[in-house]
Computed example of a mutant assay.
Amino acid sequence: MLRRTLMRTGGLAAGAAFAGSLWQGAAQALPLRAPGPYGALGAPDVNGVALPPGFTGRVVARTGRRVGGVLWHPAPDGGACFPDGDGWIYVSNSEVPLLGGATAIRFGPGGAVRGAYRILSGTNLNCAGGRTPWNTWLSCEEILRGRVFECDPYGSRAAMPRLAMGRFRHEAAACDPDRQVIYLTEDEPDGCFYRFRPTHWGDLTAGRLDVLCASSAGAVTWQRVPNPAALLEATRHQVDAARRFNGGEGCHYADGVCFFTTKGDNRVWGYDTESERLEIVYDADAPLRVVDNLTGTPGGDLYVAEDTGNMEINLITPDRVVTPFLRVDGHPKSEITGPAFSPDGRRLYFSSQRGVRGDTAGTDGVTYEVTGPFRR
């Protein structure tokens, strides 16, 4: 219910849930500015990360250096955590051409690295993705006719392409176990927002791909994409009524709402799956800039990463307070990627994709862990 509270106290929902015109009311969807729940950021630590009081950070991996027995990949991007006995696993994509893929780090109960291994190799520009309820990782290729690969974070089974989920410039995925669908974003200036309904929940080899179509009053409909794997006609051009989004990025589902970001217009959106209405949750120039990956907590907080900007992860609370949670100093040409919480909610993982040097090949990527009194 906290997710739905956030939706109904922001944007067009102020005064009457989802009332009025979504497009005419965009200027109303401004964040409340107030002190965040954790207080102001302190000075940067030895790793250049500024955090609120009570939080500490460390570096867990650097591109080109060994972690858990393997070389950490370049350009670390989307990520997720998975339970693993008395510990957990953090999975991270590699957004580089031809040699992308994904790597997993296994942690013990105290946070010590127990090992690391590749779970996907030989793929192309693996950007974001999403975790499934059956504990697999969906790694998405951000290329023309890109694919979604379902990966085993435990390293026992080979990764498999899931072509029924469409061939387009994939960004992120978010699973909705209540309606048994997966929402998908597309990183194009005229991209779309999709949902995939598997023929059998838990098996992604076959199913139906729909595209969101919106009216001017916020209500949406869905239409089937005729040929998700078409060679000549782009997926986003197959349904004339499809709603266009300017650069789809991160995607996160919880409590009946799927949140997603669009970097081209710096917006955070919320799709209410029960009422089938679309809402603008955040539409402002500050403090959150160039929105990208996002994740959330069971208590209803959203953590939204910035692509460039001033390299922050911003917190959006259920009462729409928007405030910086952390900032990485000295990485002006990089971006924040892969935010994900450990299963117990006490640790947050993320990366600076291009690090201090900021080269486009991502050879200076850094992956961090932050520990502290997170609200859960």
Score class of each variant (00 low, 15 high):
186 E>T: 08
56 T>Y: 03
344 D>T: 04
370 V>D: 03
90 Y>T: 04
223 Q>R: 15
79 G>S: 14
310 N>L: 08
243 R>Q: 15
292 D>I: 07
163 L>S: 06
65 R>I: 04
158 A>E: 15
347 R>G: 04
136 T>Y: 06
233 E>K: 14
147 R>Y: 04
136 T>A: 11
349 Y>M: 07
87 G>H: 07
343 P>H: 06
107 F>A: 11
317 T>Y: 01
368 Y>D: 09
372 G>K: 08
188 E>R: 15
335 E>S: 06
129 G>Y: 13
182 I>Y: 15
116 A>M: 05
30 L>P: 00
11 G>R: 08
218 G>N: 12
11 G>I: 09
319 D>K: 02
168 F>C: 07
283 D>M: 11
363 T>V: 09
223 Q>K: 14
270 G>D: 09
356 V>Y: 09
130 G>R: 08
50 A>R: 08
90 Y>A: 06
106 R>K: 09
336 I>C: 03
38 Y>D: 07
136 T>C: 12
274 E>W: 09
63 T>Y: 02
313 I>A: 02
59 V>T: 12
114 R>K: 07
246 N>Y: 13
18 F>K: 09
37 P>L: 14
121 S>Y: 00
373 P>Y: 05
295 T>G: 00
196 F>W: 05
270 G>Y: 10
51 L>A: 12
3 R>W: 05
84 D>Y: 06
316 I>P: 00
20 G>D: 15
281 V>P: 02
302 L>P: 00
17 A>N: 09
132 T>S: 13
211 V>D: 14
92 S>N: 10
218 G>H: 07
346 R>V: 05
70 V>H: 01
227 N>K: 11
157 R>C: 07
360 T>N: 10
321 V>C: 10
61 A>R: 02
233 E>Y: 08
143 I>R: 13
50 A>Q: 10
12 L>Y: 02
195 R>M: 05
235 T>D: 10
338 G>L: 04
62 R>S: 09
6 L>K: 01
239 V>P: 01
295 T>L: 02
326 L>V: 03
129 G>A: 14
270 G>V: 10
220 V>K: 10
330 G>Y: 01
236 R>N: 13
202 G>S: 11
248 G>S: 10
353 Q>D: 04
257 V>E: 01
5 T>G: 02
191 G>E: 06
114 R>N: 06
195 R>C: 08
344 D>L: 05
328 V>Q: 12
235 T>W: 06
251 C>D: 13
223 Q>H: 13
331 H>W: 11
26 A>L: 15
111 G>P: 01
86 D>F: 01
360 T>R: 13
238 Q>C: 03
372 G>S: 08
43 A>T: 15
91 V>G: 02
181 V>Y: 07
316 I>A: 05
317 T>C: 03
194 Y>N: 11
359 D>G: 00
242 A>K: 06
309 G>D: 01
49 V>D: 05
326 L>N: 02
140 C>P: 00
273 T>V: 14
285 D>R: 12
212 L>E: 11
245 F>E: 07
365 G>K: 01
72 W>T: 01
47 N>H: 15
369 E>R: 09
132 T>A: 09
297 T>K: 05
251 C>I: 07
